[in-house]
Write a protein that binds this DNA or RNA. Structure first.
Lengths: 234, 234
DNA sequence: CTCGATTTCTAATACACTTTAATTTTCGCC
DNA sequence: GGCGAAAATTAAAGTGTATTAGAAATCGAG
């Protein structure tokens, strides 16, 4: 686990100074929340990371819970945007398993490379109290729908082995991805390596065809189909 | 997620009354810790679940942190016992992929069916402060070793596709398992169904052979090998 | 350079939670 | 059936943290 990198995230870049400070606070909150959990997220710590005094936070957010609520929400919301964008860039006739691979890559990249927010959302989805959940749950369900649809299509196409329980398989796959933030460390292997392994593992795990090895490489940046739009999302 | 089931766990059964109360407190702590996170685990809540007053906890544990430390530690320690026991019951010539399937089943069963402790450990491994980590980390590494060895053997046997990064594959698999506690709900599908899907998904995902479907069923409680000793671990 | 709004800070309040102290209850045993 | 240790309770201390109040600093525009 990468330590002590107060995450530049995307703050410091655009908008008025006020907007940038607000963003700095959000980034700091995402950073702390992802590491300390809901109850462990103290405004003093957030303030320290954001380089200001705790009460200043109240100029931008009505309460600690509102701040956290916004982090939780945007964690998934941005993930959805990112993944959906990658999927939309695919040709309509893209096979379902290829789509799933694209979603796998998009999910891992966003979670590991880009966002403390998503890690914060994922790790705390079970810990935040009811009153924070509302907006977050809505988005979480939307994200679930994306994956549900991907798997259903694959099933309909006959690309998924029939003995697999579709819901269980989907959740196991998502679990493998979500958990990656707990162990991935850039110093112990490149992100690309992880992505390649995940795609291969998942495709082979789901696939009914006997194409386990080198299937016709949608494994990586195959026939230039999506991929180009990847940078647009950051 | 199963709500409001203060977990009978194994308390109330054996030993002196004092030992049973101590166990009740531990069980309660595991329950709260798994749901509220390290910082969110208040002694008042633990006490409520254990049906006594908060200060009574100090008769059995020197401090809140000591209590939590013990929960964290035993979460993995018991998991190790359970999984190792299942593996030891296998004949020496059991193929590596079959061993992995047994470990998958043991892990899922223990985590989902038996223990709040393991869920507590898993969910909080990144949240507890340094001073609690020591004993816990040692066990966590031991558990990692078990899986590392399983995967290495499979690799040596040539049962795992060579293009898979071994560490990444192992962690992705463990992630899929660990995450199961976040979504599995007995009312939305049986545990057996989840286990069957996980085994199938993982075997097909890793395997270099083209035996994806019905391999020769180590899929379930095949040749009556382990299984009987399952209850002994609790 | 100065005025007024915006932004941030310091000081103080209020409350929740761990932990200690002192007291009471429980319960096996003579 | 009442004595003494064990177990649990109530009351109180002390600390940390969200939040509020009020004052200072910053900063853009005239």
């Amino acid at each position: 686990m990468p330590r002590k990198t107060p995450s530049r995230e995307h703050a410091e870049t655009s908008g008025t100074k006020s907007a940038r400070t607000r963003q700095r606070i959000l980034d700091a909150a995402a950073h702390v929340l992802s590491r300390k959990g809901f109850a462990g997220t103290r405004l003093t710590d957030v303030a320290e990371v954001a380089e200001l005094q705790a009460p200043a936070i109240y100029y931008y957010f009505p309460s600690r819970e509102d701040l956290i609520e916004e982090v939780m929400w945007s964690g998934i919301a941005h993930m959805i945007d990112h993944v959906q964008q990658q999927l939309d860039a695919l040709p309509d006739d893209t096979p379902a398993l290829d789509r799933i691979e694209v979603a796998v890559e998009a999910h891992l990249r966003y979670q590991l490379e880009i966002s403390d927010y998503t890690t914060a959302s994922i790790r705390n989805s079970g810990q935040v109290p009811e009153n924070i959940r509302a907006r977050f749950s809505t988005e979480a369900n939307r994200y679930g729908d994306i994956w549900r649809k991907l798997f259903q299509e694959a099933k309909r196409e006959g690309s998924i082995r029939p003995e697999l329980d579709l819901r269980a398989a989907r959740m196991l796959v998502l679990g493998a991805l979500n958990w990656a933030a707990e162990w991935w460390n850039p110093r112990r292997g490149t992100l690309d390596q992880v992505i390649r392994t995940a795609k291969s593992l998942i495709r082979a795990g789901l696939s009914s065809a006997d194409e386990a090895d080198t299937p016709e490489p949608p494994t990586q940046r195959s026939r230039g189909r999506a991929k180009k739009s990847a940078k647009a999302a950051s």
